[in-house]
Amino acid sequence: MSLKSLNLDDLPEFDPPADLWPRIAAAYEGRRRSRRRALFGTALAAGIALLAIAVPQLRGPQPIDDALAALQRQSRALEVELADLSANGAAPIESEVELRAIETALQAAYDRGGADAEIAPLWQARNDLLSSLIAVHTAGGRLTRI
């Protein structure tokens, strides 16, 4: 049957119930409210997730073990001292390979979430190496490791 052959006059007479339009409007409004609640809930969940990620970042670095922090401060001070010696014409670092190996091990330990008991000895080894390099540079000698 095509639309051209459809005669609307042949359709039966239909009188909708009086409460049909209010029911349609109520159902439509209910769906709108449901969509708004779902959208609000999704936005709220996304906001909470962002806050959970952002708040620790806003507080800055988390406090770490005091002994580990002391080793890190000592390492920074030794780096500055060694850089000053190297800038004043001291011999180049012969143990740069060993220093890079320790730094690589430190980074790997941090990357896998190593405990302070694993990380602290690496910082200590780094500090010991930097101290020995400073001593050698100060004495004007060359460091030889066998």
Rank of each mutant, 00 (worst) to 15 (best):
M1H: 07
L3N: 02
L3M: 06
S5R: 12
L6G: 07
L6S: 06
N7I: 11
L8K: 05
L11E: 05
L11A: 14
L11Y: 12
L11M: 09
P12A: 15
E13L: 12
E13K: 13
F14L: 15
F14I: 14
D15P: 02
D15Q: 13
D15H: 09
P16L: 10
P17L: 13
P17D: 15
D19W: 01
D19T: 05
D19I: 13
W21L: 14
W21Y: 06
P22T: 08
R23D: 07
I24C: 12
A26T: 05
A27K: 12
Y28K: 15
Y28Q: 15
Y28M: 08
E29K: 13
R31I: 09
R31C: 04
S34G: 15
R35Q: 03
R36W: 04
R37K: 00
A38C: 11
L39N: 13
A43T: 11
L44I: 08
L44A: 09
A45E: 10
A46W: 00
G47Y: 07
I48T: 07
A49R: 01
L50V: 13
L51H: 09
L51T: 08
A52Q: 01
I53T: 07
A54D: 06
V55P: 07
Q57T: 02
L58Y: 07
L58A: 13
R59K: 03
G60D: 08
P61A: 14
P61T: 08
Q62F: 03
Q62S: 04
Q62Y: 06
P63K: 11
D65E: 09
L68W: 00
L68H: 02
A69E: 12
Q72K: 03
Q72S: 11
R73V: 02
R73A: 12
A77T: 14
E79N: 10
L82I: 08
A83H: 13
D84M: 14
D84A: 06
D84I: 10
S86I: 10
A87M: 09
N88E: 08
N88F: 03
A91Q: 01
A91G: 07
P92C: 09
I93L: 15
E94G: 05
S95D: 02
V97W: 00
E98C: 04
L99H: 06
R100G: 02
R100A: 07
A101G: 03
A101N: 12
E103Q: 14
T104I: 09
A105N: 03
A108H: 02
A108P: 03
A108C: 05
A108V: 00
A109V: 10
D111Y: 00
G113R: 11
G113Y: 01
G114N: 04
A115K: 03
A115G: 04
D116H: 02
A117S: 15
L122C: 06
L122T: 00
W123V: 01
W123M: 06
Q124D: 09
A125L: 06
A125G: 01
A125W: 00
A125I: 11
R126G: 04
L130E: 14
S131P: 00
S131E: 11
A135H: 02
A135Y: 03
V136A: 10
V136H: 09
H137V: 01
T138K: 15
T138C: 05
T138P: 02
A139R: 11
G141S: 14
R142W: 02
T144C: 08
T144E: 09
